Structures are given as C-alpha cells and as structure tokens.
Amino acid sequence: MLPPRITVTVFVISPDTRSERKFDLHLGVEQLKNKLELITGIPAQNQRILLLNNDTDTEEVNVLDDDSKALGFYGVRDLQFLKVIDTNPSVSFTGQLTDVSQVDKFELSDEAYAQRRDTVLAYKQRNKIGRFAEGEESKSKPIPELNIPLGSRCEVETAEEGFHKRGTVRFVGPTKFGTGEGIWVGIEYDEPIGKNDGSVQGERYFECKPKFGVFVRPDRVQIGDFPVEEIDFDDDEEI
C-alpha cells in the first residue's frame, strides 16, 4: 500500500526567479532537481539546494545534497524557502537575464525626436493640441480687473481657526506656472510661512526672503487693514 501523499508549500528562489510551489514530501531530490530546472533554468547537475526559513537568512537549515533521499528526509515544512544556487553559471547564464548594466540603451536627441512622425509631439502638432493650438480658442483671454492694489495689506484664507496668514501684496497677474488660465496674487508674508522667495520655476515675479513668498488665487485674498501679528512657531503647521 502506498503511503499517503503529503505536500508542502514552499518558495523557490534563484538568481532569476521567485515562485511559490507545492511538492510531495516523498519526492526524491533527483526528481526535485528536474522540476526545479524547468522553474529556474539551472541544469539539474549544477544545482545546489539550500533549505532556509527566510529568504534573508545567511545560514541554511539544511542542504539537499543527497539525490537518493526524499524531500521529507530533510524536514521541509510549509512556507520555507528552497534556494537554488547555480554552481556553474557560465553554462546557464544565471543572473544575466536580470542584469541590464550591459544592455545598450536607446537614446534620441531632441532634434531627432522632433523629426519623427510617430511620437506624442508629432500627434499634438498634427491635431493642434496644447501649445500647437491655433485660432481664437488659443488666444489669451482678457485679464479681469481686480481690486487688489500692489502694496496693500491682506489676509489669506486658511482652514486653521485662529491662524492668520497676513502679509503684503507684491504681485497680481498671470504666471508661467500652474494649470489653466487665470490670475495669481503674489504675497510676501509677515512670517516665514510661505513656499518661495517670489520666484517659481526659475521665473521671478517679486522679491522677498526665502519662505516668505506665496502665490494664491484672488478669491483667497482679503484686502484690509490687517496689522502684523507675531506667530508662535512652536505650534506652527508645516506648509
């Protein structure tokens, strides 16, 4: 009478592969190697199989080095690791499938890219999309008049109760940053709670010290007689 089949679920790892497999504990090591060759690409005769509890272990639990023994002889348990080492990688090219350091990289200059007709750039040019758009729709919309004088004191809307972001208006107008069209208001805060020094993406719109400048939409700005307030930076939120 044949003994009952008992299987274990293990992880098989090699220089090029990692997978979860089920094996019968009565399977001989020689037969196991034949199966692992199909999984890892390492010839059976070049395999050294280590049994690990974890794939980061530096010491093996056991070494499956007797082809005549069954898998169960080595005490293999569920969720352990079978690490397959290639003793002769020059034959099977182990590790070279994942090594991209020797792969020639395709590089294309901006000029050559612009000449191609199968690119996103060419598609936008043909269909007049984005900066290639023409006609009335592509013309800049008139800038609406805003009652936000330069040099006026202001307060910027904030969601934090009791926290006032106050400063002086230093810029009102369109910018080269941001999505969509519209007007931005550049403000020099009284305290270093801003995001810039009055410049964004290399373009300067006004002068101020670093972390004192910010750009916001006009609907978040309230003009008025707002005196300078000292902020307790022990509880200051990071912006």
Rank of each mutant, 00 (worst) to 15 (best):
P144A: 09
E145L: 11
N147T: 11
N147F: 03
I148E: 05
I148L: 15
I148H: 02
P149A: 01
P149W: 07
G151S: 08
G151R: 11
G151I: 10
G151Q: 09
R153K: 14
C154Q: 04
E155P: 00
E155D: 08
E155H: 00
E155W: 00
V156Q: 05
T158A: 12
E160G: 00
E160A: 13
E161Q: 12
E161I: 13
E161V: 14
E161M: 11
G162K: 04
G162Y: 05
F163E: 10
F163R: 10
H164R: 13
H164Y: 15
K165W: 13
K165R: 15
R166F: 06
R166Q: 11
R170I: 00
F171T: 06
F171V: 03
F171H: 04
G173E: 07
G173M: 01
T175G: 00
T175C: 09
K176T: 14
F177L: 07
T179F: 13
G180Y: 05
G180W: 01
E181R: 15
G182K: 09
I183S: 09
I183G: 07
I183L: 12
W184M: 14
V185E: 01
V185R: 02
I187W: 02
I187P: 03
Y189G: 01
E191T: 13
P192N: 11
P192R: 07
G194W: 06
G194Q: 03
G194M: 05
K195N: 13
G198T: 02
S199M: 08
S199Y: 03
Q201Y: 14
R204G: 02
R204N: 07
Y205E: 06
Y205T: 06
Y205K: 04
Y205L: 04
F206L: 05
E207L: 10
E207P: 00
K211G: 01
K211R: 12
F212G: 01
G213Q: 04
V214A: 12
V216L: 11
R217S: 13
R217G: 13
D219M: 12
D219I: 12
D219E: 15
D219G: 01
R220I: 01
R220E: 09
R220G: 00
Q222Y: 07
Q222E: 13
Q222N: 12
I223L: 09
I223T: 09
I223V: 15
I223D: 03
G224E: 01
D225N: 15
P227W: 07
V228Y: 13
V228A: 14
